[in-house]
């Protein structure tokens, strides 16, 4: 039950996008389609789980003064690992996400969880927290990507169902990203946050 709680907290109560409002840059930049949002979410989750686990292991031996640089090095290592793996086995994803793969390093969600959770908890719990927050982030990105894809390109997961004359291209571009995310946050505040 307790384990389940940690995961659920990451998805709803501590949802990184809608509640903690962290990691906005990849959220806005990579959600031009549902599939891109999903890949970015999964990529971040990969780094988040591994970094959380390693940091929870090394936290006791790291002196307080250098803990931030050490955490950043750990995170950057996993990000580079991910980048190499993507280039080698799924180059299409690497091409679509571009600069935002290396930028996972400075995604405040990961450093935030390392500081706020992983360095105080055990390996197992930290992994679960990574999974929960990761799922919350992935869901948020996929939903935002899906909304923008439907409105802007008239398709969902690349399946076209609205004709070209009814597509609103602005939603694929920068302004649509901000406005969509703003309204999704409103909906989240109105309907999900209330249930306490």
């Amino acid at each position: 039950m307790n384990k389940f709680r940690i995961i659920l907290d990451g998805i709803v109560k501590n949802n990184p996008t809608f509640v903690l409002i962290l990691g906005m840059c990849p959220t806005l930049a990579t959600t031009t389609s549902a599939i891109n949002g999903l890949s970015m979410g999964l990529a971040t989750m990969f780094v988040l789980i591994l970094a959380n686990m390693v940091i929870s292991l090394i936290a006791p031996i790291v002196p307080d003064k250098v803990h931030i640089p050490v955490y950043i090095v750990v995170i950057a290592t996993f990000v580079t690992l991910l980048q190499l793996l993507l280039k080698a086995y799924v180059p299409a994803v690497n091409d679509a996400l571009g600069l935002f793969i290396p930028l996972i390093v400075v995604n405040c969600i990961i450093l935030g969880r390392a500081e706020g959770f992983a360095n105080k908890h055990g390996v197992g719990e930290s992994a679960l927290d990574g999974i929960g927050i990761g799922i919350g982030f992935t869901l948020a990105l996929t939903v935002l990507g899906a909304v923008r894809e439907i409105l802007g390109s008239g398709s969902i997961f690349n399946v076209q169902f609205i004709g070209e004359q009814y597509q609103m291209l602005a939603f694929v571009m920068a302004p649509g990203a901000f406005i969509c995310l703003g309204y999704l946050m409103v909906l989240f505040n109105k309907f999900i946050k209330k249930e306490k």
């Binding site: 090394i58 031996i61 790291v62 002196p63 250098v66 640089p69 050490v70 090095v73 750990v74 950057a76 290592t77 580079t80 690992l81 190499l84």
Partner: peptide, 13 residues
């Protein structure tokens, strides 16, 4: 510790 972590990470990569 910092040097150690850096070395391990660089070797891994």
């Amino acid at each position: 510790v910092l040097t150690g972590v850096c070395l391990v990470c660089a070797a891994l990569l």
